[in-house]
């Protein structure tokens, strides 16, 4: 299972980066989302996979038993998921604005050249 998951993580990375390398703004954002998912999954995988033992202390106990899923990566990912939503929303609106102002979603056309500055 770990092997399959590792391959999926690699695939998500690869496709995310491939999409980010495209010139279309829309693809860039989708790539960003895929990459974010890949990262989350990677952290999750590295925390160790445990089946059917969520990190919730049973009602009768006061500490967790020996085998349980690691809560630390879960807390990390939970934050990451929510934050990435904010990021995506912002990115997507930025793209929208750029598109309205510049009139193209070709990234190559909106690269700016700074003025040569002579001191």
């Amino acid at each position: 299972m770990e092997i399959v998951l590792a391959i999926i993580v690699g695939l998500l990375y690869a496709s995310g980066i491939y999409l980010m390398l495209r010139r279309s703004l829309v693809k860039l954002v989708i790539g960003l989302v895929l990459l974010g998912n890949g990262v989350n999954l990677l952290i999750f995988l590295l925390g160790g996979l445990v089946r059917g033992k969520p990190p919730i202390i049973p009602a009768t106990e006061s500490i967790l038993g020996e085998i349980y899923a690691d809560p630390v990566p879960q807390a990390l990912i939970l934050t990451a998921i929510v934050i990435s939503f904010g990021l995506q929303a912002f990115a997507i609106v930025l793209i929208k604005r750029t598109y309205i102002v510049v009139g193209t979603d070709d990234l190559d056309e909106i690269h700016s050249t700074e003025e040569e500055d002579d001191y």
Partner: peptide, 17 residues
């Protein structure tokens, strides 16, 4: 905060876009 953020984002977008 999360409720406010999500609603703000979606509402503004669907209103203006």
């Amino acid at each position: 905060v999360v409720l406010g953020v999500a609603l703000t984002i979606i509402f503004t977008i669907s209103e203006t876009v």
